[in-house]
Design a protein around this nucleic acid. Structure first.
Length: 760
DNA sequence: TGACGTTCCGGACAG
DNA sequence: CGGAACGTCA
């Protein structure tokens, strides 16, 4: 115990040892929130207040769940059996597997990822002769997911016009189709679990009395459905320990509702609100910069980070002439950091949008510095891997039409569009899956389709007694995928990825420990346990609280869940010492010795779309706050006068955020020398700024001899300072597009508008 | 059926 | 500009 609690600061200690009541922990960036969460769990167990089976800990990412598990087992030698630690989706999957009958799902229900969901919606629109121009599949998908994230079924969605009524109708059709196929999308995992528990009182009470302690990580990221899910799980007795930071709420666009924090405080009558404001990550100037910036937001719960680490270095600000030059400057600075002994992996380059990475990557590549880009496609999302998985899905649940369509003719086996049309007609007519409709298709199409069915059936039969990895191997071989890729020019990588699916299955089996003691519960599991896990009580099937592994699931089903819920990482080059490139969003939760935040320009950061959104700029500011607080010792912030975007040169003003940061903590590396240079030799400066290959615009500039130039800074009585982005027309008819930053883009008649030139 | 051309579009994210 | 998605042709 001594050991467990030592080195905690007073606030951390207070949080860890709170009584079993609802608690809200406002945990600032770098304040040791994961430590508090894990120590809390360990303390509850070690003091005998709760058995491991009484713990439910929820996270958003598999990574966070795994991290919690790792730290927990390092902290104490207790067995973690019975403890439920996982993502919302992983935990819901477990519950639905265990109670599939009550949830009205087939035992082998499968999970649609967003790709599958979208393709299913496209199929559905086509089958119902819906104009996909009028009802774009993507919009319908957002509509459906948005409704589900608010806990609304189609029947509960209010529609006030024909358009929305149609959307609701399509939502209903979509849900019916999912049910027919035995598939659920991500949002459905949560909604279905929510409905299951709210309708089934014995089951609900069973879990409510089992999970006396519910711990939630990143609480500010919860959406309405997740919040209600937690309320349901907690009941009146559950002690919910919610940890979050309203200042780091950056996922409103995907349904997160920061309001859940104050709602929680109110509805759970939280008496224990603890702020963790001691920061163990960043030096003073960095922290001051973050604090001063975020103070510009309203509606904060209120929090101010402080550190004992001293002021440290000033935050370095750099103004580049072009995005290219910005990249070159980053490389020069990074090189000298490395020369001073910094590890490359301790240096991060952050950007607001992915499009910015290309220029930086290009420059890094030319300079030979190893780098690693986060984001992008992950292992289980690769086409060839999805193909292999689709074969396995069909063996486990043949009614999954997405899986069927993905591989019925891949590799090609003479099943063309005509055959599939016939098949789809038959399936629609009888209201059955494509697989089940095959016998109704006659003629040549029927023969080739029949052969495909035989392939799947044979694979199932031949592999029924094989261990999972061997099963996967056999299926990949039988599918013909390898042969297909052998004939393809660049198929070698794909074949290697197919081999990796087998490795993934091997790893999965060893981690899940078939036939051995299970590790703690992370996501789906297929453990075959000793003794029954599901017991019947008053006619209701419930989980035996002591059973370590409640879910009876075939190894294949479990592996398929795993593939859907954990897309795997995309780190081909992981492990080597490389510069880290990523968006600000994906940097959340990480920390680096040195951080570059790039592209601090109006329109980019804050992003132009955020201006129109309710609370959009505040979210951008929180995003900037997240970015700043990633840095431990050194922080660079840069912006550029010009930037290539969508194949066009853009002229941006520097971000408003500069005015919101404390002058005393900043050090401007680029005094306004370049501005003078500009006005003195505009043309030469432009060509320099534009770089090679963009002389088109440079020529335009020369052409327009009307007293104003593209790129010139101007001032307007009403709109303030702006930059001329483009000029159209000539002479007395000339009009200019001027970017006035927060006042937006204006089109002004140059002969009418009263503009003044601004220098530097 | 696949190779190639054309058009369209452009924010961030995990499960 | 660069990619995804769709259309056309051999």
């Amino acid at each position: 115990m001594q050991n467990l609690l030592h080195n905690l600061n007073p606030e951390q200690l207070a949080a860890v040892t709170l009584p079993a009541q609802p608690a809200l922990i406002l945990a600032g960036a770098g304040s040791g929130k994961t430590r508090v969460l894990t120590t809390r769990i360990a303390w509850l167990i070690q003091t005998g207040q709760v058995s491991p089976a009484g713990i439910l800990a929820v996270t958003f990412t598999n990574k966070a769940a795994k991290e919690m598990m790792t730290r927990l087992s390092a902290m104490m030698p207790i067995n973690t059996r019975g403890m439920w630690i996982g993502t919302f989706h992983g935990l819901c999957n477990r519950l639905l597997r265990a109670h599939y009958r009550d949830a009205a799902l087939p035992q082998t229900f499968q999970i649609l990822d967003s790709q599958d969901q979208l393709s299913m919606i496209k199929r559905l629109l086509k089958a119902n002769n819906i104009d996909d121009e009028k009802y774009p599949p993507r919009n319908l998908m957002y509509f459906i997911n948005g409704a589900k994230d608010q806990g609304l079924r189609a029947s509960a969605v209010e529609a006030f016009d024909d358009y929305n009524r149609k959307m609701v109708e399509l939502y209903e059709i979509y849900d019916q189709q999912c049910q027919r196929e035995g598939v659920v999308d991500f949002a459905e995992l949560l909604l279905r679990t929510y409905e299951l528990l709210s309708r089934n009182q014995p089951l609900r009470e069973h879990y409510q009395s089992r999970f006396r302690h519910i711990l939630v990580d990143e609480f500010q990221d919860t959406n309405d459905l997740q919040y209600n899910w937690l309320k349901l799980m907690a009941g009146t007795q559950g002690a919910v320990f919610a940890v979050g930071d309203d200042d780091q709420s950056i996922y409103a666009f995907r349904g997160a509702n920061v309001g859940n924090m104050s709602a929680f405080e109110r509805e759970f009558k939280v008496e224990n609100l603890i702020k963790l404001e001691q920061n163990y990550r960043s030096h003073g100037h960095i922290l001051d910069t973050a604090n001063t910036l975020i103070a510009n937001n309203s509606k904060r719960l209120g929090k101010n980070l402080h550190t004992d680490a001293g002021h440290g270095e000033l935050v370095r600000i750099y103004e580049a002439t072009s995005d290219l030059q910005e990249a070159q400057w980053i490389i020069e600075e990074a090189k000298s950091l490395i020369a001073e002994g910094a590890a490359r992996s301790d240096i991060a380059v952050l950007y607001r949008s992915n499009a910015q990475s290309r220029v930086i990557e290009h420059a890094l590549f030319s300079s030979g510095i190893p780098y690693r880009v986060y984001g992008g496609q992950r292992f289980f999302e690769r086409a060839e891997v999805k193909h292999a998985i689709a074969y396995l899905q069909l063996m486990d649940n043949p009614h999954n039409d997405s899986a069927f369509l993905r591989v019925v003719n891949f590799p090609t086996r003479g099943i063309g569009a005509r055959s599939l049309e016939q098949l789809q007609d038959a399936a629609k007519q009888y209201g059955i899956s494509l697989y089940a409709a095959v016998p109704y298709v006659t003629g040549k199409a029927g023969t080739s389709l029949g052969a495909f069915i035989k392939l799947i059936e044979a694979a199932r039969f031949e592999t029924q007694n094989l261990p999972l990895p061997e099963m996967v191997q056999v299926v990949i071989d039988a599918s013909g995928l390898i042969t297909h890729y052998q004939n393809e020019k660049e198929g070698a990588d794909r074949i290697e990825n197919l081999e990796q699916v087998v490795s993934a299955a091997t790893l999965f089996v060893s981690e899940e420990g078939f036939g051995h003691d299970a590790p703690a519960l992370l996501g789906p599991t297929s453990q075959q346990m000793a003794g029954p896990a599901i017991v019947t009580q008053d006619g209701v099937e419930i989980l035996d609280a002591d059973a370590p592994l409640p879910v009876v699931m075939s190894p294949l089903s479990a592996f398929l869940s795993h593939a859907s819920l954990e897309a795997g990482d995309n780190q081909a080059q992981a492990g080597q010492d490389a510069l880290q490139l990523m968006t600000v969003h994906s940097a959340k939760g990480l920390e680096f010795d040195a951080v570059f935040i790039t592209g601090l320009e109006e329109g980019l950061f804050p992003h132009e779309n955020s201006q129109k959104e309710e609370g959009g700029v505040e979210e951008e500011r929180r995003l900037m706050y997240v970015a700043i607080t990633r840095a431990k010792r050194r922080l660079y912030i840069s912006f550029s006068q010009t930037r290539m975007l969508h194949g066009q040169m853009r002229f941006n003003l520097k971000s408003r955020f500069f005015e919101e940061m404390p002058e005393d903590s900043l050090k401007w590396l680029s005094p306004k020398v370049q501005q003078h240079h500009w006005t003195a030799h505009p043309k030469a400066a432009w060509e320099d700024a534009l770089g090679a290959g963009t002389n088109q615009i440079a020529q335009n500039i020369v052409k327009k001899d009307i007293g104003w130039r593209i790129g010139e800074s101007v001032a307007h009585a009403k709109f303030g300072e702006g930059v001329i982005v483009n000029i159209e027309g000539s002479g007395g008819n000339a009009r200019a597009h001027i970017n006035f930053g927060r006042h937006g883009m204006k089109l002004l008649d140059l002969s009418v508008a009263k503009l003044e030139k601004v220098s530097g």
